[in-house]
Simulated scan of single mutants.
Amino acid sequence: MACFPMIKTEERMTSLHASRSENEPDFQQRDLTLFKILSPHVCRALAISEMLDIRAIRSEMLENTLNGLVAGVFLTARDGHVVYLNHAAECQIKMGNAIHLVNNRIVPTDLAARNALAKAMKEAARDDAVRNMGEHFVAIPAGFGGGYVATLLPIESTQRHGIFASFAASVAVFMQDPVQATCMPGEAFAKLHGLTGGELRVLLALSQGLSGTEAADMLGISEPTIRTHLQHIFSKTGTSKQLDLLQLLHHSTPPIRTLEPAH
């Protein structure tokens, strides 16, 4: 038998074997020389295949993660062409009330927003953008009110050759609808601040825009009980007004979209 190792990692080891039966002649020097010539080419081919497989898995994992976000994610090349958009971004484009894709570029319907976004993307695509650029936000209004807030994130040159290399991305644009409702982090928020079940129910009722009277009717408790729960919630969360409390809850909302029921 003659063999050589091809891949050796902490998880696995792979080798190539050639064997002959007892009735066949032993391997000669010429056979071993051919084996030595062949071995580096086989190892190189397997190493390339291994790298491509890992890249494909990482890209798929990244794509699945981005598709779970509420915000639209647009990855753009240096010249502004969109090289990737997640599920939320596709929906925003289909709605067409604030942004369109024209020649594979993000084009807001509002002229002022169009110019502001183009300028911001040009700045974000610069090689020194990560060092010199702070947070950059652009308002993208819709024609009939509302719209999106675009947040631009320059991708470091080192990252452009890493996990984002398959997308050839230079700038990440996150397009968020400020009023888009997402699932409230009720149980986690309650555990974080030590709220009781009754206090959490009051908080979630108020977060839906109900008044104290309406919340009391819905929960089947008195208004004084609502006020008592609210005072306890203020104390536990370090807030003093209902507006501040609801803002704290809103800021704790996860940036992930609710999964659609299977049909």
Rank of each mutant, 00 (worst) to 15 (best):
I140T: 04
L153H: 13
Y148T: 00
P108C: 01
V179C: 02
R12C: 06
L210A: 09
I155N: 03
A150F: 00
E90G: 06
E90S: 09
A139T: 07
L259V: 00
D127M: 09
T158A: 10
C43G: 00
N115S: 11
C43K: 10
Q176I: 02
T182S: 10
A2E: 09
I221A: 02
C183T: 13
L219E: 01
V82Y: 03
H250R: 15
A216Q: 05
N115F: 09
I140C: 05
Q28A: 15
D177R: 04
G212M: 13
T213F: 12
R160Q: 15
L38G: 02
G209M: 00
I140F: 06
K191W: 06
S15P: 02
A216T: 03
N97I: 12
L66D: 06
T239H: 03
I256R: 14
H229P: 08
A188F: 07
T253V: 13
M175E: 05
H193R: 06
K94N: 05
A190Y: 00
N97S: 14
H251Q: 10
I106F: 01
P255K: 04
V107E: 12
N86L: 07
M13L: 11
H41Q: 13
C43Y: 00
E63C: 01
G186E: 07
I140G: 04
L206G: 03
S240Q: 14
T196Q: 14
A181F: 04
I256V: 15
L219M: 03
K241T: 15
A190F: 02
K122M: 12
V82K: 01
A77T: 07
F144K: 14
R20G: 04
S211G: 15
L117V: 01
A56D: 11
L85R: 03
L259Y: 07
K8M: 11
I221M: 12
A139D: 13
L246I: 02
Q247R: 15
N104H: 06
R160L: 03
F35W: 10
K36A: 15
I37Q: 13
E135L: 01
D177A: 03
T9Q: 08
L200K: 08
D244K: 05
L204M: 15
S21G: 15
